[in-house]
C-alpha cells in the first residue's frame, strides 16, 4: 500500500477533555485508528463544521493531516503524535489506557 496524506477530524471530549477522533459511523473514538480518513480536505472540513455543532459532545473540532500507511494512520506532525500518545513524562492519558 502506498503512503498517502489523508485528513481526519479531531476534537476533545466535552466531559473528559480526552483527544477523540470522528469515525466513519459518525461517532467519537479515542483510538486514532478508528478515525474516518478523508481523501478530500473540503469534505473533511464540512464534516468538522457539522461535528462542531454537537456542542454537548466535544470541544475544539478541527481537521488535521495524517499519513495513511499499511500500519494505519500516522500523524504527520509531532503535536498530533503527542495528542495520540499522551505525555512523555508519565504513562497517563492514552498510554494508561493502552
Amino acid at each position: 500500500m502506498m503512503t498517502q496524506t489523508v485528513h481526519i477530524v479531531t476534537a476533545n471530549a466535552l466531559l473528559s477533555g480526552e483527544v477523540v477522533y470522528l469515525t466513519a459511523a459518525d461517532h467519537w473514538s479515542a483510538d486514532l485508528q478508528q478515525a474516518r480518513a478523508f481523501a478530500d480536505k473540503p469534505l473533511a472540513e464540512a464534516a468538522s463544521a457539522s461535528a462542531a455543532r454537537r456542542v454537548a459532545e466535544v470541544v475544539g473540532c478541527y481537521v488535521t493531516d495524517m499519513r495513511q500507511t499499511a500500519q494505519g494512520l500516522t500523524p504527520t506532525h509531532f503535536r498530533e503524535d503527542f495528542r495520540r500518545r499522551g505525555p512523555s513524562n508519565h504513562a497517563h492519558g492514552k498510554q494508561a489506557q493502552a
Binding site: 480526552e18 483527544v19 470541544v59 475544539g60 503527542f82 495528542r83 499522551g86 492519558g93 492514552k94
Partner: peptide, 8 residues
Amino acid sequence: LYLQLHAY
C-alpha cells in the same frame, strides 16, 4: 479551568 492537549 483550561482545556489542554489531553484533558482539562
